[in-house]
Amino acid sequence: MSDLLVIAERRGNEVHSSTLELLGKARELSMKRPLTVSVVLLSDKRVQEDAADALFSGGADRIIQAVDKSFGRFNFEPYTKSLAAIVREFAPEIVLAPATTSGRTYMPGLAALLKTGLTADCTGLDIEEGTGNLLQTRPAIGGNIMATIKTPNHRPQMATVRPKTFSPLKEEYESKGELVNFGVTHDLIQTGAKLIEFHPIGEGQKSVQDAEVIIAGGMGLRKVENMEPVYRLSKMINGTVGASRKIVDSKWIGHEAQVGLSGHTVKPKIYIAAGISGAVQHIAGMQTAEFIVAINRDRNAAIFNFADIGLVGDAVEILNELAESIESEVKR
Protein backbone atom coordinates (compact mmCIF):
# COMPACT_ATOMS: atom_id res chain seq x y z
CA MET A 1 0.00 0.00 0.00
CA SER A 2 1.29 3.46 -0.77
CA ASP A 3 1.97 6.06 1.85
CA LEU A 4 0.64 9.51 2.60
CA LEU A 5 2.70 11.68 4.93
CA VAL A 6 1.24 14.52 6.97
CA ILE A 7 3.92 16.81 8.37
CA ALA A 8 2.84 17.77 11.88
CA GLU A 9 2.70 21.37 13.01
CA ARG A 10 3.82 22.03 16.57
CA ARG A 11 3.23 24.96 18.88
CA GLY A 12 5.83 24.32 21.55
CA ASN A 13 5.10 20.78 22.72
CA GLU A 14 1.53 20.78 21.50
CA VAL A 15 0.47 19.37 18.18
CA HIS A 16 -1.46 22.10 16.36
CA SER A 17 -5.06 21.50 15.27
CA SER A 18 -4.10 21.87 11.59
CA THR A 19 -2.36 18.49 11.83
CA LEU A 20 -5.65 16.81 12.80
CA GLU A 21 -7.45 18.62 9.99
CA LEU A 22 -4.95 17.19 7.50
CA LEU A 23 -5.33 13.74 9.04
CA GLY A 24 -9.09 14.04 8.60
CA LYS A 25 -8.61 14.81 4.92
CA ALA A 26 -6.00 12.06 4.55
CA ARG A 27 -8.48 9.46 5.85
CA GLU A 28 -11.05 10.72 3.37
CA LEU A 29 -8.54 10.33 0.53
CA SER A 30 -7.66 6.85 1.76
CA MET A 31 -11.23 5.75 1.03
CA LYS A 32 -10.64 6.50 -2.64
CA ARG A 33 -7.32 4.74 -2.84
CA PRO A 34 -5.74 2.65 -0.12
CA LEU A 35 -3.14 4.72 1.74
CA THR A 36 -1.13 4.24 4.88
CA VAL A 37 -1.32 7.55 6.67
CA SER A 38 1.76 8.61 8.62
CA VAL A 39 2.37 11.72 10.68
CA VAL A 40 5.90 13.05 10.62
CA LEU A 41 6.83 14.80 13.84
CA LEU A 42 10.10 16.70 14.07
CA SER A 43 10.78 17.81 17.60
CA ASP A 44 13.44 18.40 20.22
CA LYS A 45 11.52 16.12 22.58
CA ARG A 46 10.04 12.69 22.26
CA VAL A 47 6.30 12.63 21.63
CA GLN A 48 4.18 12.32 24.79
CA GLU A 49 1.89 9.35 25.05
CA ASP A 50 -1.33 11.37 25.08
CA ALA A 51 -0.21 13.42 22.07
CA ALA A 52 0.62 10.21 20.20
CA ASP A 53 -2.78 8.76 21.10
CA ALA A 54 -4.48 11.91 19.81
CA LEU A 55 -2.66 11.54 16.49
CA PHE A 56 -3.57 7.86 16.21
CA SER A 57 -7.23 8.40 17.01
CA GLY A 58 -7.14 11.45 14.73
CA GLY A 59 -6.39 9.20 11.75
CA ALA A 60 -2.70 8.25 11.75
CA ASP A 61 -1.67 4.65 11.12
CA ARG A 62 1.89 5.51 12.00
CA ILE A 63 3.92 8.23 13.68
CA ILE A 64 7.39 8.84 12.32
CA GLN A 65 9.27 10.84 14.89
CA ALA A 66 12.66 12.44 14.48
CA VAL A 67 14.14 13.93 17.61
CA ASP A 68 17.01 16.38 17.67
CA LYS A 69 17.70 19.60 19.52
CA SER A 70 17.93 21.49 16.23
CA PHE A 71 14.21 20.81 15.67
CA GLY A 72 13.18 22.98 18.66
CA ARG A 73 11.93 25.73 16.43
CA PHE A 74 11.59 25.54 12.67
CA ASN A 75 14.99 25.92 11.00
CA PHE A 76 15.17 25.70 7.20
CA GLU A 77 18.15 23.44 6.52
CA PRO A 78 17.70 20.81 9.27
CA TYR A 79 13.98 20.57 8.47
CA THR A 80 14.23 20.34 4.69
CA LYS A 81 17.16 17.93 4.70
CA SER A 82 15.68 15.65 7.36
CA LEU A 83 12.25 15.66 5.73
CA ALA A 84 13.88 14.83 2.39
CA ALA A 85 15.64 11.86 4.02
CA ILE A 86 12.35 10.68 5.57
CA VAL A 87 10.53 11.00 2.24
CA ARG A 88 13.28 9.05 0.49
CA GLU A 89 13.00 6.27 3.04
CA PHE A 90 9.21 5.96 3.09
CA ALA A 91 8.64 6.89 -0.58
CA PRO A 92 5.16 8.32 -0.04
CA GLU A 93 2.79 9.06 -2.91
CA ILE A 94 1.53 12.21 -1.18
CA VAL A 95 2.97 14.70 1.32
CA LEU A 96 0.68 17.23 3.02
CA ALA A 97 1.63 20.08 5.34
CA PRO A 98 -0.20 23.05 6.83
CA ALA A 99 0.27 26.37 5.02
CA THR A 100 1.78 28.07 8.06
CA THR A 101 4.90 30.24 8.11
CA SER A 102 7.00 27.11 8.60
CA GLY A 103 5.05 24.79 6.28
CA ARG A 104 5.12 27.39 3.54
CA THR A 105 8.89 27.51 3.90
CA TYR A 106 10.05 23.90 4.29
CA MET A 107 7.63 22.49 1.70
CA PRO A 108 9.13 24.51 -1.20
CA GLY A 109 12.60 23.58 0.07
CA LEU A 110 11.58 19.93 0.16
CA ALA A 111 10.01 20.07 -3.32
CA ALA A 112 13.22 21.64 -4.64
CA LEU A 113 15.41 18.90 -3.17
CA LEU A 114 13.13 16.09 -4.35
CA LYS A 115 12.44 17.61 -7.76
CA THR A 116 8.73 17.37 -7.50
CA GLY A 117 5.67 19.59 -7.68
CA LEU A 118 4.07 21.53 -4.86
CA THR A 119 0.74 23.31 -4.76
CA ALA A 120 0.27 26.02 -2.15
CA ASP A 121 -2.84 26.87 -0.16
CA CYS A 122 -5.10 24.13 -1.50
CA THR A 123 -8.78 24.49 -0.69
CA GLY A 124 -9.67 21.11 -2.14
CA LEU A 125 -7.89 17.76 -2.41
CA ASP A 126 -9.22 14.72 -4.20
CA ILE A 127 -8.10 11.54 -5.89
CA GLU A 128 -8.49 11.34 -9.65
CA GLU A 129 -10.40 8.28 -10.77
CA GLY A 130 -8.39 5.90 -12.88
CA THR A 131 -4.95 7.37 -12.33
CA GLY A 132 -5.09 7.73 -8.55
CA ASN A 133 -3.37 11.11 -8.92
CA LEU A 134 -3.92 13.77 -6.29
CA LEU A 135 -6.10 16.61 -7.57
CA GLN A 136 -5.14 19.85 -5.86
CA THR A 137 -7.52 22.77 -6.12
CA ARG A 138 -6.54 26.29 -5.17
CA PRO A 139 -7.72 29.82 -5.86
CA ALA A 140 -5.67 31.49 -8.59
CA ILE A 141 -5.32 35.00 -9.90
CA GLY A 142 -6.67 36.78 -6.88
CA GLY A 143 -9.30 34.10 -6.34
CA ASN A 144 -11.12 34.87 -9.59
CA ILE A 145 -10.77 31.29 -10.66
CA MET A 146 -10.16 27.94 -9.06
CA ALA A 147 -7.35 25.97 -10.64
CA THR A 148 -7.03 22.23 -10.25
CA ILE A 149 -3.45 21.09 -10.42
CA LYS A 150 -1.80 17.72 -10.47
CA THR A 151 1.70 16.32 -10.45
CA PRO A 152 1.39 13.50 -12.98
CA ASN A 153 4.94 12.23 -13.35
CA HIS A 154 6.82 13.18 -10.21
CA ARG A 155 6.57 11.78 -6.71
CA PRO A 156 5.63 12.59 -4.09
CA GLN A 157 2.71 14.87 -4.88
CA MET A 158 2.93 17.73 -2.44
CA ALA A 159 0.42 20.27 -1.17
CA THR A 160 0.04 22.79 1.61
CA VAL A 161 -3.38 23.56 3.10
CA ARG A 162 -4.29 26.56 5.19
CA PRO A 163 -5.39 25.82 8.75
CA LYS A 164 -9.21 25.63 9.15
CA THR A 165 -9.76 24.50 5.57
CA PHE A 166 -10.60 20.87 6.36
CA SER A 167 -12.20 19.22 9.38
CA PRO A 168 -10.72 16.69 11.78
CA LEU A 169 -12.35 13.25 11.97
CA LYS A 170 -15.62 13.24 13.88
CA GLU A 171 -15.19 9.69 15.09
CA GLU A 172 -12.08 8.19 16.58
CA TYR A 173 -9.96 6.25 14.13
CA GLU A 174 -8.96 2.74 15.08
CA SER A 175 -5.28 2.78 14.42
CA LYS A 176 -2.61 0.14 14.42
CA GLY A 177 -0.67 2.75 16.35
CA GLU A 178 2.83 2.16 15.08
CA LEU A 179 5.53 4.52 16.38
CA VAL A 180 8.68 4.67 14.28
CA ASN A 181 11.86 6.50 15.24
CA PHE A 182 13.81 8.03 12.42
CA GLY A 183 17.48 8.31 13.23
CA VAL A 184 18.78 11.77 12.41
CA THR A 185 22.34 11.70 11.14
CA HIS A 186 24.71 14.60 11.61
CA ASP A 187 24.77 15.70 7.98
CA LEU A 188 21.00 16.27 8.00
CA ILE A 189 21.04 18.85 10.75
CA GLN A 190 24.07 20.87 9.74
CA THR A 191 23.36 24.56 9.26
CA GLY A 192 24.97 27.90 9.95
CA ALA A 193 21.61 29.46 10.86
CA LYS A 194 21.12 30.06 14.56
CA LEU A 195 18.10 31.12 16.58
CA ILE A 196 19.16 33.99 18.84
CA GLU A 197 15.89 34.89 20.55
CA PHE A 198 12.21 34.09 20.55
CA HIS A 199 9.56 36.51 21.80
CA PRO A 200 6.15 34.92 22.13
CA ILE A 201 3.13 37.16 21.63
CA GLY A 202 0.97 37.67 24.66
CA GLU A 203 -2.53 36.31 24.97
CA GLY A 204 -4.66 39.05 23.54
CA GLN A 205 -7.84 38.93 21.57
CA LYS A 206 -8.55 35.51 20.20
CA SER A 207 -6.96 35.34 16.79
CA VAL A 208 -9.39 35.54 13.93
CA GLN A 209 -8.29 32.09 12.75
CA ASP A 210 -9.43 30.39 15.94
CA ALA A 211 -12.61 32.41 16.46
CA GLU A 212 -16.01 30.75 16.71
CA VAL A 213 -17.91 33.91 15.87
CA ILE A 214 -16.49 36.64 13.65
CA ILE A 215 -18.00 40.01 12.99
CA ALA A 216 -16.18 41.48 10.04
CA GLY A 217 -16.39 45.05 8.85
CA GLY A 218 -15.91 46.49 5.39
CA MET A 219 -16.00 49.81 3.59
CA GLY A 220 -19.81 49.81 3.78
CA LEU A 221 -19.37 51.05 7.36
CA ARG A 222 -18.21 54.27 5.69
CA LYS A 223 -15.86 55.57 8.41
CA VAL A 224 -13.61 54.22 11.12
CA GLU A 225 -15.87 55.54 13.90
CA ASN A 226 -18.55 53.16 12.67
CA MET A 227 -16.43 50.21 13.71
CA GLU A 228 -17.79 50.89 17.20
CA PRO A 229 -20.93 48.73 16.85
CA VAL A 230 -18.76 45.96 15.44
CA TYR A 231 -16.59 45.97 18.56
CA ARG A 232 -19.59 46.36 20.84
CA LEU A 233 -21.40 43.39 19.37
CA SER A 234 -18.27 41.29 19.23
CA LYS A 235 -17.71 41.86 22.95
CA MET A 236 -21.28 40.86 23.80
CA ILE A 237 -20.96 37.53 22.10
CA ASN A 238 -17.35 36.77 22.92
CA GLY A 239 -16.52 37.06 19.26
CA THR A 240 -13.60 38.33 17.23
CA VAL A 241 -13.47 41.27 14.86
CA GLY A 242 -12.52 40.57 11.27
CA ALA A 243 -11.90 42.92 8.38
CA SER A 244 -11.91 43.27 4.62
CA ARG A 245 -8.68 44.16 2.87
CA LYS A 246 -9.92 47.67 2.14
CA ILE A 247 -10.40 48.71 5.76
CA VAL A 248 -7.03 47.20 6.67
CA ASP A 249 -5.41 49.20 3.87
CA SER A 250 -7.23 52.28 5.21
CA LYS A 251 -5.67 51.48 8.61
CA TRP A 252 -9.01 51.19 10.44
CA ILE A 253 -7.68 47.97 11.95
CA GLY A 254 -4.49 45.89 11.92
CA HIS A 255 -3.60 43.28 9.34
CA GLU A 256 -4.04 40.46 11.88
CA ALA A 257 -7.81 40.95 11.49
CA GLN A 258 -7.82 40.64 7.71
CA VAL A 259 -9.86 37.83 6.25
CA GLY A 260 -9.24 36.71 2.69
CA LEU A 261 -6.62 35.56 0.28
CA SER A 262 -3.98 37.99 1.49
CA GLY A 263 -5.15 37.69 5.09
CA HIS A 264 -6.43 34.72 7.06
CA THR A 265 -8.65 31.84 6.09
CA VAL A 266 -11.28 31.40 8.77
CA LYS A 267 -13.77 28.71 9.67
CA PRO A 268 -16.01 30.07 12.41
CA LYS A 269 -19.44 28.77 13.36
CA ILE A 270 -20.90 32.16 12.46
CA TYR A 271 -19.50 34.83 10.17
CA ILE A 272 -21.18 38.20 9.97
CA ALA A 273 -20.03 40.32 7.03
CA ALA A 274 -21.07 43.91 7.75
CA GLY A 275 -20.69 46.30 4.85
CA ILE A 276 -18.49 43.92 2.89
CA SER A 277 -19.30 43.72 -0.80
CA GLY A 278 -17.73 40.31 -1.29
CA ALA A 279 -14.65 40.61 -3.49
CA VAL A 280 -13.52 37.15 -4.54
CA GLN A 281 -10.37 37.55 -2.47
CA HIS A 282 -12.49 38.00 0.64
CA ILE A 283 -14.84 35.15 -0.23
CA ALA A 284 -11.86 32.82 -0.60
CA GLY A 285 -11.03 33.39 3.06
CA MET A 286 -14.47 32.99 4.65
CA GLN A 287 -16.58 30.67 2.54
CA THR A 288 -15.63 27.80 4.84
CA ALA A 289 -17.61 29.40 7.68
CA GLU A 290 -20.51 27.25 8.86
CA PHE A 291 -23.14 29.99 8.79
CA ILE A 292 -22.75 33.28 6.98
CA VAL A 293 -24.72 36.45 7.57
CA ALA A 294 -24.34 39.26 5.05
CA ILE A 295 -25.44 42.81 5.70
CA ASN A 296 -25.16 45.23 2.82
CA ARG A 297 -26.99 48.19 1.44
CA ASP A 298 -26.66 47.00 -2.15
CA ARG A 299 -28.99 44.08 -2.74
CA ASN A 300 -26.86 43.00 -5.72
CA ALA A 301 -23.65 42.82 -3.71
CA ALA A 302 -21.72 39.63 -4.45
CA ILE A 303 -21.54 38.74 -0.76
CA PHE A 304 -25.22 37.70 -0.79
CA ASN A 305 -24.37 34.85 -3.18
CA PHE A 306 -22.24 33.31 -0.46
CA ALA A 307 -24.45 33.94 2.54
CA ASP A 308 -27.06 31.88 4.36
CA ILE A 309 -29.04 34.92 5.33
CA GLY A 310 -28.81 38.38 3.86
CA LEU A 311 -30.08 41.67 5.21
CA VAL A 312 -30.39 44.55 2.79
CA GLY A 313 -29.78 47.78 4.62
CA ASP A 314 -27.28 50.04 6.31
CA ALA A 315 -24.80 47.87 8.20
CA VAL A 316 -24.23 50.44 10.96
CA GLU A 317 -27.94 50.82 11.70
CA ILE A 318 -28.58 47.10 11.62
CA LEU A 319 -25.64 46.27 13.89
CA ASN A 320 -26.74 48.93 16.38
CA GLU A 321 -30.27 47.66 16.34
CA LEU A 322 -29.04 44.10 16.83
CA ALA A 323 -26.79 45.11 19.73
CA GLU A 324 -29.58 47.05 21.43
CA SER A 325 -32.01 44.24 20.98
CA ILE A 326 -29.60 41.75 22.54
CA GLU A 327 -28.79 44.13 25.37
CA SER A 328 -32.41 44.74 26.32
CA GLU A 329 -33.04 41.02 26.37
CA VAL A 330 -30.05 40.29 28.57
CA LYS A 331 -31.10 42.99 31.04
CA ARG A 332 -34.56 41.57 31.24
Binding site: G117, A140, G143, I145, T148, I149, T151, N305, F306
Partner: peptide, 14 residues
Protein backbone atom coordinates in the same frame (compact mmCIF):
# COMPACT_ATOMS: atom_id res chain seq x y z
CA UNK B 1 6.36 18.84 -12.26
CA UNK B 2 2.89 20.41 -11.89
CA UNK B 3 0.15 20.67 -14.51
CA UNK B 4 -3.00 22.70 -14.40
CA UNK B 5 -5.71 20.25 -15.36
CA UNK B 6 -8.87 22.21 -14.87
CA UNK B 7 -10.01 25.74 -14.35
CA UNK B 8 -13.30 26.68 -12.85
CA UNK B 9 -15.08 29.48 -11.11
CA UNK B 10 -15.57 29.29 -7.35
CA UNK B 11 -18.85 27.52 -6.77
CA UNK B 12 -21.81 29.08 -5.09
CA UNK B 13 -22.89 26.59 -2.52
CA UNK B 14 -25.40 28.47 -0.42
Amino acid sequence: PTRVVRIGTPKLSR
